[in-house]
Deep mutational scan, measured.
Amino acid sequence: PDFTLHWNGITIHFKGIDEEQFRHLRELLDRGVSLEELEELAKELIK
């Protein structure tokens, strides 16, 4: 499924991740993950 997340004025689209992965990403963003960390995470998910 696809998810869209609005965070700090940025709209991020996640394609092909499951709800569990999306929930994990939201928790990280709510905790204050940096954009660099988010990019690293995205690379991991894409593999």
Results as ranks from 00 to 15, higher is better:
Ala42Met: 12
Ile10Val: 13
Ser34Lys: 08
Lys43Cys: 02
Leu28Gln: 08
Leu45Lys: 05
Lys15Ser: 15
Thr4Glu: 08
Glu27Arg: 09
Phe14Ala: 04
Asp30Val: 11
Thr11Gln: 05
Lys15Gly: 15
Glu36Lys: 13
Asp18His: 06
Glu37Lys: 12
Gly16Pro: 08
Lys47Thr: 12
Trp7Pro: 00
Ala42Thr: 06
Glu36Tyr: 07
Gly32Leu: 11
Phe14Gly: 02
Ile46Cys: 06
Gly32Asn: 07
Glu36Ile: 12
Thr11Tyr: 03
Asn8Pro: 01
Glu20Phe: 11
Trp7Glu: 03
Glu39Ile: 15
Lys47His: 08
Gln21Ala: 12
Asn8Gly: 07
Glu37His: 11
Leu38Val: 14
Arg23Thr: 12
Gly16Tyr: 08
Leu35Ile: 12
Leu5Glu: 00
Arg23Gln: 15
Leu28Ile: 09
Asp30Ser: 10
Leu25Glu: 00
Gly32Met: 08
Ala42Ile: 14
Leu41Arg: 06
Ile10Trp: 00
Ile10Thr: 08
Arg23Gly: 09
Leu35Ser: 04
Trp7Ile: 14
Ile46Ala: 15
Arg26Val: 15
Arg31Cys: 08
His13Cys: 08
Glu27Phe: 04
Ser34His: 06
Ala42Lys: 05
Glu36Asp: 13
Leu29Arg: 05
Asn8Trp: 01
Ser34Thr: 12
Glu20Tyr: 11
Glu44Met: 09
Arg31Lys: 14
Glu44Lys: 08
Thr4Pro: 00
Glu19Pro: 05
Ile46Gln: 11
Glu40Trp: 11
Thr4Cys: 08
His24Pro: 02
Lys43Asn: 10
Leu45Asp: 02
Arg26Asn: 09
Glu39His: 13
Glu37Pro: 01
Glu19Gly: 06
Pro1Ala: 11
Leu29Thr: 02
Gln21Tyr: 06
Glu27Thr: 12
Leu29Phe: 14
Ile12Tyr: 03
Glu37Phe: 10
Pro1Gln: 12
Glu20Thr: 11
Glu40Gln: 12
Leu25Ile: 10
Thr11Ile: 08
Leu5Asp: 00
Gly32Thr: 06
Asn8Ala: 09
Val33Gln: 04
Gly16Val: 04
Leu41Thr: 05
Phe14Arg: 00
Glu40Asp: 12
Leu5Asn: 00
Lys47Leu: 06
Thr11Asn: 03
Glu39Ala: 14
Leu28Asp: 01
Glu27Gly: 11
Ile17Arg: 00
Glu27His: 08
Leu35Glu: 02
Lys43Tyr: 04
Asp30Tyr: 07
Glu36Cys: 05
